[in-house]
Nucleic acid binder design. Sequence first.
DNA 1: ACTATATATCTTAGTTCTGAGAGACATATC
DNA 2: GATATGTCTCTCAGAACTAAGATATATAGT
Lengths: 179, 179
Amino acid sequence: MSLRRKSDEDTDRTPLPGTAHPLEVSPETEAALKLWVVLSRAQAAVSAHVSADVARHGLTLTEFAILEALYHRGAMLLGEVQRRILVSSGGITFLVDRLVAKGLVERQECPSDRRARYAALTEEGEAMIRRIFPAHAAMIERVVSGLDLPEQEEAANLLKRLGHSAASSDTKEVTFSNA
Amino acid sequence: MSLRRKSDEDTDRTPLPGTAHPLEVSPETEAALKLWVVLSRAQAAVSAHVSADVARHGLTLTEFAILEALYHRGAMLLGEVQRRILVSSGGITFLVDRLVAKGLVERQECPSDRRARYAALTEEGEAMIRRIFPAHAAMIERVVSGLDLPEQEEAANLLKRLGHSAASSDTKEVTFSNA
DNA sequence: ACTATATATCTTAGTTCTGAGAGACATATC
DNA sequence: GATATGTCTCTCAGAACTAAGATATATAGT
């Protein structure tokens, strides 16, 4: 094997490392890849705004999501919250611990299942979410205002279907219910 | 065997402590909030698949994004890669270090600016991305196939505009001027 | 009742990344 | 040429998680 220097690109057509390989795929593949890219970028861009907004109140995005869920849905089992906001089981313990430490949430026993715990807002937590939610919602409205209302609804519709089909297309390890 | 999966809502829970406060906002606000939710969920669902796919080759999502960018665009300055994949400045150093340790990427000096470094694929890195990219692209195509081609293009179009407008809408820089 | 398996949460160790700042270099202005 | 200011990468501390296993409890089959 000969070690090649980067400077001696001349007569040889073997693709050297560091040279570009423009994307050459079918239109279907290209559309799928592009959708994945713009989906990630749009989510990151919106997320950055939302994250910065809740950070002003000393909260992370995930913490806020928990508070909001508990406010709008009422007390929930930790596992329910976990599946709703999509974190690991260790993650939900960690997050609820932190919200308890901040005095915003409390754990409550579940009378019908002694393994389970409810997470519920404290009065302080409820007061906080009630106080910051309106400006928060207005801010999200501004951030997505690059699309008008019908476009937002159409995008939401498409994304909902995309999310559902992607979530249910469990590739491996999950039972493939072959009936 | 009846592997019965418990659905989220089938626990017979008596409405214990925290009471629910159903969402009551204007249709505009509701559309914006819903868009934000389905955007996050769709991204997470697709991301989980892509992440699991590249993990089979010992790579994280971010590492793969770097390799792919270097393969398709050629060598790039670290700062260019950083802005492209949206990580912090410390993050790009960390990630490139790790890819260098894996033998997939190398740093190269920039002749016109001695502060800057290029990241470039090694031959091994290029061989790897060439080997795994086709199946990777096919997998993404499958994951987003819940939408047909015109729908994918429409979603991509909407998301591109959403991403751009969200990214450019400078958050009212909440510097709080010494609050 | 006993056993096996499933579920709910928690613990621990480790991974991935961020944010603030430092050092080296570049560039514009005087 | 000297100085100020901006840019690029790197370092370091630590935040925000995840993965895997531990523990306690529940539930179904025998």
